[in-house]
Amino acid sequence: MGEGLRGSIETTGLTMIYRSGKVEVPAIREINLTVGPGEFVAIMGPSGCGKSTLLHLLGGLVRPTRGQVLIDGIDIAKLSDAERTAVRREKVGYIFQRFNLLPNISARANIELAKRIHGNGHANLYKDDHILALLGIKEKIGFRPTELSGGEQQRVAIARAVINQPSILLADEPTGNLDSHNSRLVLTLLQDLNQRLGQTIVMITHDSEAASMANHVIEMRDGRILARTHHFVYEPEFEGLF
């Protein structure tokens, strides 16, 4: 895999069918998608259209029923559980709507845990400080998640996701639990990280303003991609459309 492929995502005929007994429920249907390195892509669509499943497939959390998922040229659909875990560890950072910080340990321990899992436990502290300063949480990392506001928790979660400098950031409604002020803050940070660190970002959102931050917006319906829009322009009157 060449350096130029860092952070590239490509799916071909990607299909995911959940089975419950004899009943088959297609969640993703024949999706062909290409996201170039350093792109910031937003995925929009109604609940149940397959956005989260698509994100799980891109992160290798589940294996597709059919099709390819190429991450930096590696088809992770063909990899074993352990190999997909290794790809995720090396190349992917996750940001969740509910932050998903471990509640019993401090923000610092949450971030350091990510480094330990990555095998990067003794990395240069300067880099960490830089990221923490960028996210504005340097003073807060001694606190436990329950002692932080929603916006602070999400910034810690972002720090945890980017601390190992993965080439791809997958964000599942990162502003879904935040007020408008914190939402804007988090989106600005994501955009900033995308521009400064060059990470590819795929973000699920229901929020048109959030989608307007992305380079491209993908609209999904019933497990399929309906449209791909370049430079989505946020118009407040469109709010609630998706």
Binding site: T85, R88, R89, Y94, F96, N100, L102, L113, A114
Partner: peptide
């Protein structure tokens, strides 16, 4: 369970 899911999403191996 959720905590284990978080660790897995972060790339934690089975051994970890």
């Amino acid at each position: 369970t959720r905590e284990i899911g978080i660790l897995k999403s972060m790339g934690a191996s089975k051994a970890f």
